[in-house]
């Protein structure tokens, strides 16, 4: 027998997961470049780090996705963050640690980390 609290815990845990099944326009989208170049440069641990953070922090309004090569292979792993109503932010040379920082600073506190972004 599951208690009411346990049922609620299941609801909360599953919600972040199910959230990926909406194309909700108001969601923050995190897109990881997962082409050959990205994967070779270490995009998979980045993607996994995002996934773990989204799940453990129960971020219901964040969709995690992937994309192919955007042409800047030199800068991989590349991550693009789309916050509704704001310009997209492109992070380059990412790793798992940086990914977790992006979650805390950019996603949770609304402060993009300039240091990690693409600069010309």
């Amino acid at each position: 027998m599951k208690s009411l609290e346990e049922l609620q815990a299941i609801r909360d845990r599953k919600k972040a997961e199910i959230n990926n099944r909406t194309t909700g326009e108001n969601n923050i989208r995190i897109i990881v470049g997962m082409a050959t170049c990205g994967i070779a440069a270490g995009a998979r641990p980045v993607l996994q780090a995002f996934g773990e953070e989204i799940e453990s922090r129960k971020l219901e309004n964040v969709t995690l996705g992937q994309t192919g090569c955007i042409g800047l292979c030199k800068y991989e792993p590349i991550v693009e963050v789309f916050v509704p109503g704001q310009d997209k932010v492109t992070y380059v040379h990412m790793d798992a640690k940086k990914a977790r920082e992006v979650i805390t600073s950019h996603i949770l506190n609304g402060k993009p980390i300039a240091e990690y972004t693409y600069k010309e």
């Binding site: 997961e17 990926n20 099944r21 993607l47 996934g51 799940e55 995690l64 996705g65």
Partner: peptide, 9 residues
């Protein structure tokens, strides 16, 4: 971790 892609058949 959560799965990044869901395939619904």
């Amino acid at each position: 971790m959560i799965e990044r892609a869901h395939i619904l058949v």
